[in-house]
Amino acid sequence: MAILLDENTKVIVQGITGKQGTFHAKSMIGYGTKVVAGVTPGKGGQEHLGVPVFDSMKEAVEATQATASVIFIPARFTYSAAMEAIDAGINLLTVITEGVPVQDSARIRQKALDNDVVMVGPNCPGLITPEASKIGIIPGKICTKGNVGIVSRSGTLTYEIIQNLTVNGFGQSTCVGLGGDPIKGIGFNECLTLFENDPQTNQIILVGEIGGTGEQQAADLVKKEITKPVYAFIAGQTAPPGKQMGHAGAIVHGKSGTAKEKMRILSEAGITTVRTSSEIPIRIKENL
């Protein structure tokens, strides 16, 4: 099972002929992802990495019946690429690009909502269902198939947590990197619900950070609707207020956005909160 993505998902890579697109499309194909097409306007008809390249998303979807696309395109062109993907009828849109204007993200998000498209990102590492498929840039070799579902606002920190789990014998069902921007596609709650309903997932890990209210909303949902054990790690314990810590969404506004406050609210909702990433497998073992 797993969520959002499996070995049969057909994926189109937008920007496949670019430097990042080429590097990561290759890695996705190597991992087993069904990359069925690439899109680069003006390069239709060519073949790249053994995959046919099309001029437009419409042509690529018509020719391959792909249901997912991933965007490796510079920020200034991401808005149009995302609109094109949704208009072409894909169901799962993953935007890896960092630095997308927030107004563009808001427009993409609304269009995705209006068309029942699951949008992941922008500014995210994508998602991986170990030993089946990956969309994006999560290194495949640190993952192993299992029962832990991960949903995270961070990229590299997620890798850290995945590796700690893998080394300690806990495989993953699906890992989803939501992205670090203030306005983004799906959030914690959509993923928590998907994991709750996924028979393969037995434990859920939530990786949050300072800023925003996603963690607080997740706490509410967990209290009411999630029966599986949830573990949470919040980055930014040492962050000073008012300063942006890399991610545009990671900024402490008053007391409510601090890591401490988020951990308190999550604990109150019955979620096991940890202080370091290596603590997660220890806690899972204790609770088994």
């Binding site: 961070s154 990229g155 920190l157 950070e209 890399g246 890591a259």
Partner: peptide
């Protein structure tokens, strides 16, 4: 990565 950078700050303090 921003998340890992924040977590690194946190770990040093921890």
């Amino acid at each position: 990565g921003a998340g890992l950078s924040m977590a690194t700050c946190d770990l040093l303090e921890f």
